[in-house]
Computed example of a mutant assay.
Amino acid sequence: MSLTSSLLHPLHSLKLSTAGAGAGATSSTFLHGTTPLSLLAKPASASVPALRSPVISLPPIRAMRSLQGRVVCATSDKTVAVEVTRLAPHPKYKRRVRKKKKYQAHDPDNRFKVGDFVQLEKSRPISKTKTFIAVPVAPRNARAASKSGGDGEGELGLPLESQGQQQA
């Protein structure tokens, strides 16, 4: 017992000087190993972030994924293979190159044939490899043909010279 009391005795007489005071300033004593609360207070700059509301991290909102591609295989029942082409930079040469990937898409009515352009809409998994549903899209070249009128007229809707001679 006397050993522990002899070790604790010097702790009772420790004195803590204040930060702003010089060598002859007053000091406060430790009472049974505790310090005054004024010395334990955090600086004002450290308490400012504690006043902010906690940041709640929400998962990112992901848009519905949709791709466009061309049907390359339609032999399976209710399934079509669609090839999607995208442009991506080459890792070494930084030139844009075409990258192709094939997806299996659900076609419940078997209405798509090879060469049709379709849009793939993300859906629940239908099978191990099918997570898209095929939706019809007008082919890229058909839009230009529909704008011209299809009756052999030019871009402005006027008959071509060769057609005018045939009618006369």
Rank of each mutant, 00 (worst) to 15 (best):
S2T: 13
L3P: 02
T18R: 06
A19R: 12
G24D: 13
A25M: 07
A25G: 07
H32P: 05
T34D: 07
T35M: 14
P36G: 11
L39R: 11
L40V: 07
A41V: 13
A41T: 15
K42T: 14
L51R: 10
R52N: 11
V55N: 08
I56A: 13
I56L: 12
L58Q: 09
I61N: 06
R62E: 15
S66P: 00
G69R: 00
V71P: 01
V72P: 05
C73A: 12
C73M: 08
A74S: 13
A74I: 08
K78A: 09
R86W: 02
P91C: 01
K92Y: 11
V97T: 04
R98Y: 05
K101N: 07
K101S: 10
K102D: 10
N110E: 07
D116F: 00
V118Y: 02
Q119Y: 12
P125S: 05
I126L: 06
K130C: 11
T131I: 04
F132T: 00
F132G: 00
V135S: 05
V137I: 14
V137D: 03
P139Y: 03
A144F: 14
S146W: 12
S148F: 13
D151K: 09
G152K: 00
L156G: 03
G157T: 02
L160Y: 02
E161Q: 08
E161K: 09
Q163F: 12
Q166G: 07
